[in-house]
Amino acid sequence: MDDLNDLYQDIILSHNKRPKNEGILEPCDCQAEGYNPLCGDRITVYVRQNESLLEKVQFLGEGCAISRASASMMTSQVVGLDQEAAEAKIAEVVALLLQEEEPEVDLAVHGDLAALLGVRKFPARIKCATLAWHALGAALRGEGKHEA
């Protein structure tokens, strides 16, 4: 149960039950759908920009607790960043989830995201955690779609 409790920490469960910034964002400047063809889950990420900064990010879609919690966390973590910083944040999160060596986690830096790292022990579920982040990247690059 220890690994399971790491995966489904209270933070994850509460983001899943009461996600932040869930719903279609209108108007928005760009959006993209993240789709995992293996499981059929889809999450659309909407971005409103103010000048070059991400002003508001929302998501809507079908997904498991991990993908919903990850999307919910993401929507607050990237607000206020410019495109370059947002892309760097996406790369950082994806690396934290995928890198071989155990990442050093600083709660002050990573906040709720630290809770997401429990998924590292469940290789079949890592794509659930990265789906929304990849969708955000696709939206910012004007690609409209990311396939996991």
Binding site: L4, A65, A124
Partner: peptide, 8 residues
């Protein structure tokens, strides 16, 4: 509960 969470 999403099926993936059940599966895990």
């Amino acid at each position: 509960v999403h099926p993936h969470d059940i599966g895990t």
